Simulated scan of single mutants.
Amino acid sequence: MDKNFILPEEKTLVNLSSDIFGHFGLRTESEGIGLNYKNKKLCFILLDGLGWNIYRQTGIEFKNEIKGTSVFPSTTSNALSSFFLNKFPGQHGIIGYQLYIKQLGSIVNILGYTSSAAYMRDSMEKAYPMSSIFNFESKVTSLNRAGYSTVNIIPGFINKTSFSNILYGDNTTDTYANMVHSFYVLEENLKQGRDFISYYAADVDQIAHKLGPNNPYTIENARYILQQLSMIMKKYPEYDYVITADHGHVEVGNTINLGNDSGLRDISILPPYGDSRALFLENRKDIKDYLEEHYTNLELVEKGSQNYYQLLGKVDANTLSNLPGVIGIAKNNDIYHFPLNQRKYTMKGAHSGLLREEMEIPVLVV
């Protein structure tokens, strides 16, 4: 594979998940990363999009910081599933922003569990419940069964959605309306003294997509959030805190519109799906030959190859059928867009590939 790729080999989100849930005595899928905890109670904070590159530019430093890595593809659905289910991507199969799900016969936006062409949140749920396809127990549920008290703090607009229910199970959530409100909700839950608190915020990711990861406003937004969290954490020393991210961002180079490529369209049964920097395609010789000839900045990895299993970790037979036949990974900062609707791709920050900026994440222990 390309020499510039950062592979998910150690200190990944799966290892961090094993470390944190192993702290409570749960059985875990992998080795941890060797964090030292002072307290039994733990608050896990995930700041979507806060890659190591953005974190470093804030100028804020924590005494105990580790450079970790995301999973591949480095995208939110895959990263959060890997952490909260404590499974490798090849085990849970929720590896892309868009997935072709054979049970539904459709390319699905997995965060919204809806058609990628016409977004209506959770529109697939009545036809085929998401939990019947991805039938895994959340580690939050495992904690509750073991007698620990938990709460998951999330934005109100994703509460009790199909995807959130996969992550958090049927367990207590507390919601917030905006970033400032989230700090209040976090502090109120710290006062209640639950054993495990998870806190998720998407603001860094949203700004980085819009403005790019190196824009001063992106950095200032991340700095402000870390400063506010630091002030809150100091008030409640009875907790250990672990702050991390699901992925980072690269500055977008060229936007390559695959919808304009009639040659690729004519030989494909399914359009390219997945993510803009990790394309999912059919495993057919004519498609691979076409991509190798016309898209030399894509690294092609075939299902069944050693590289495929190295990238996705353990692969379960039950998930294998829904995994893509070929994954095309961007070697540079370009993004590959196949429009399944009329929306234009105008983002300046992107992720899901294997470059350093999108794979490296901070693991900050307080």
Rank of each mutant, 00 (worst) to 15 (best):
Y119V: 14
N322S: 07
S18R: 12
S115N: 13
G68Y: 06
L167H: 12
E238K: 13
Q103D: 15
L186I: 07
S77A: 15
L7T: 02
Y308P: 00
L13Q: 09
F88D: 15
P155L: 09
D246K: 14
Y176T: 04
I243D: 00
Q227T: 08
E137F: 02
V365E: 13
Y224G: 07
I158C: 11
L312K: 04
Y55W: 09
G325K: 05
V14K: 07
A317K: 15
G59I: 10
Y290P: 04
R343S: 07
K285R: 14
N53Y: 13
G59K: 15
L270V: 03
Q227H: 10
V363G: 03
T319C: 08
G353K: 04
S116N: 13
N257W: 02
M1Y: 10
S142G: 06
K126G: 10
F280W: 11
K210H: 05
Y217S: 12
L104S: 03
Y100P: 02
A350P: 00
P213D: 07
N322H: 10
K285C: 02
D275Y: 06
F21S: 11
G32F: 02
P216W: 05
I95N: 07
S268A: 11
F280N: 14
I267S: 05
R27H: 07
V315I: 13
N144W: 06
S268M: 11
Y128L: 13
Q306I: 08
R356A: 05
T244I: 00
K314F: 03
M130N: 04
I94H: 08
D48H: 10
E358C: 00
G259W: 10
V363N: 01
Y37E: 13
I66T: 07
L85I: 05
A127I: 12
G49H: 09
D266T: 07
L364Q: 01
H247I: 05
N135F: 02
N283V: 05
L190D: 01
N332C: 03
L26M: 14
P271W: 10
T319P: 00
S149E: 15
K191D: 05
K348F: 06
K67M: 13
A118H: 15
G93T: 04
S138F: 06
S268G: 05
S138A: 12
D170E: 15
N78S: 10
H23M: 12
E137W: 03
H92C: 03
L291E: 01
F72Q: 15
I154N: 00
N135K: 14
Y224C: 09
V185E: 07
I20S: 04
A146I: 06
L229H: 14
G51E: 01
K234H: 12
S77R: 15
L320E: 15
N189G: 08
L226H: 12
L190A: 04
G156S: 11
Y168V: 11
T244R: 01
P89L: 12
G353D: 11
S305M: 07
Q98L: 00
V151D: 05
V242P: 02
E137L: 08
H247G: 03
F196S: 10
G96D: 09
R223W: 10
D174V: 03
T173S: 10
N159V: 08
K41G: 01
V301R: 11
I110L: 11
N64L: 04
E358M: 02
S81G: 08
A177T: 12
H23G: 04
N341G: 04
G22H: 09
Q192P: 01
L42I: 08
Y168W: 14
E137T: 08
Q57T: 03
